[in-house]
Every structure is written in C-alpha cells, then in structure tokens.
Amino acid sequence: MKQKIEAVIFDMDGVIIDSEAIWKRAEQEVFSSVGVELSPELCEFTEAMTTAAVTQFWYERFPWKEKSLAEVENKVIERVAGLIRQEGKAIDGVERFIRKIKQQGYKIGLATNSPALLIPVVLEKLGISDYFDAIASAEHEQEGKPSPAVYLSVIEKLGLTPDACVAIEDSPSGLMAARKAGMKTIAIVNDAHAKAEFGIADLIVNHYGELDLKTENY
C-alpha cells in the first residue's frame, strides 16, 4: 500500500520567490567591489551553491585582501535581503497553492540552501509566514543540496517519514537532495530550462495552476 502524502516541503529561491535576478545583482555588486571578475558561465555554475560556497568559489579564483570571506558573504546576504524587501515577488500561483494545501490539511515545510537570515525576510515579504510548520537552512548543515541533510532536518521537525513528504524544487541539485532523502519530488520548470534536466522528478509542471496534490498518483 502506498504511503499517503502528508506534507509538502518547498525549496525557496525560484520555487516560492522569484529571486534569481536579485541574487545575480547582489553578487555582481558585492563581488566586483572586491575585484572579482564575474562571468555568465561561472555564475551559472554557482547557482545551486550555498552563499558560503559561492564566496569561497570566487575567492579561490580572484583572492581579495581587504575583507574576510565572512564579511563579503554577509554583504551579499544583506544586499539580497534589502532587494527582497524592496522588490521581492512571489512565484506566480504559489501563494494560492500554499493556502489551498493548508486548507486540505497538509503540513508545510521549507528547505533551502539560502542563509537562515533570508527565510523570514522572504516569508514576511510574501505574507505567508503563518503557513509553515517547519523550516531549515543548509547553512546549519555540514553540506548544502545536493546533500539531503536540509530535507532530513525539516522532515524530522515535521515528525514525519520521508515517504510521507513531497518536495517541490526548481533545480536538478535540489531534486537530487530530495530523492536522496527518500521523498517524492515535483519539479516546477520554467521556459528557461529543458525538461530533460528534470527527468528524475516524479512529476514536472510549468505552473502551480497545473498542480493538484489530491489527484496526483504517487
């Protein structure tokens, strides 16, 4: 008999908030200020990393002297937080979907590679803080996604087993993390990505309006 899905665990960036451009802007401003020469190719390579890992990545290629890695990383995080407060917008349809699944009785979690400081900034900006039963940042784990650690932390906080949870992700590394944790997976894929990249997902949708957990056959 199949395990009933009892909880939905969301990634944050690109799944709840449209923040890709915000991160790119903040990283461009902060890293270039210490002498880093960012390239589109290398920036794409760093997209799935934690902020600490991204900072280390650029330092190894363009070592700076005036500031510590922690200072530069914190400047990026502070800039992202400021831009989210000013300009942050929800991924289309996510607020309605979250309200619907909460009314249907699902528990709701959040598992992100982003720093813990940004989680309340995002949830408060979008007005959805009260819907979440458990949150976790990979900042507090030994490794970020594709390690399953941050998902396992949220599952534990929810008091459930992995097979009772489904993850919603927008990146192959996030899907890998969720699958390693033993969860079912849903990929939200926008036009910029080829669906072939997301073949490991149990379900692929383009928009939250296409998604109805009550009718999905897991």
Rank of each mutant, 00 (worst) to 15 (best):
K107H: 11
K107E: 09
K107F: 07
I108W: 02
I108A: 10
I108S: 10
I108D: 03
I108E: 08
G109S: 05
G109A: 03
L110D: 01
A111I: 04
A111S: 12
T112K: 06
T112C: 09
N113F: 03
N113I: 02
S114R: 03
S114L: 04
P115S: 05
P115R: 01
P115I: 00
P115E: 07
A116Q: 14
A116C: 12
L117C: 12
L117Y: 13
L117Q: 15
L118S: 01
L118W: 00
I119N: 07
I119T: 01
I119H: 01
P120L: 06
V122G: 05
V122F: 00
V122P: 03
L123C: 00
E124W: 01
K125T: 05
K125S: 04
K125F: 03
L126Y: 00
L126K: 05
G127L: 09
G127Q: 09
G127A: 06
G127V: 02
I128Q: 01
I128P: 00
S129W: 12
D130N: 15
Y131M: 09
F132D: 08
D133L: 08
D133E: 10
A134Y: 06
A134C: 13
A134I: 03
A134D: 11
I135N: 11
A136S: 14
A136R: 01
A136T: 03
S137K: 08
S137Y: 00
A138D: 01
A138W: 06
E139D: 11
E139I: 02
H140P: 11
H140T: 13
H140E: 15
E141R: 12
Q142F: 08
E143Y: 14
E143W: 10
E143M: 14
E143C: 13
G144T: 02
K145E: 01
P146C: 09
S147Y: 04
S147A: 12
S147D: 07
P148V: 04
P148K: 10
P148I: 03
A149E: 15
V150G: 08
V150M: 10
L152H: 08
L152R: 14
L152I: 09
S153D: 13
S153C: 12
S153R: 15
S153A: 15
V154P: 12
V154A: 13
I155K: 10
E156M: 12
E156V: 07
E156Q: 15
K157N: 11
K157D: 05
K157W: 05
K157R: 15
L158D: 09
L158Q: 12
G159V: 07
G159Y: 06
G159W: 08
L160W: 02
L160F: 07
T161A: 14
P162H: 10
D163V: 08
A164E: 15
A164V: 03
A164F: 06
A164L: 11
A164R: 15
C165L: 04
C165W: 00
C165E: 03
C165A: 09
V166D: 04
I168K: 05
E169P: 07
S171K: 06
P172G: 03
P172M: 07
S173K: 15
S173N: 15
G174S: 03
G174Y: 00
L175P: 02
L175W: 02
L175Y: 01
M176I: 12
M176S: 14
M176W: 07
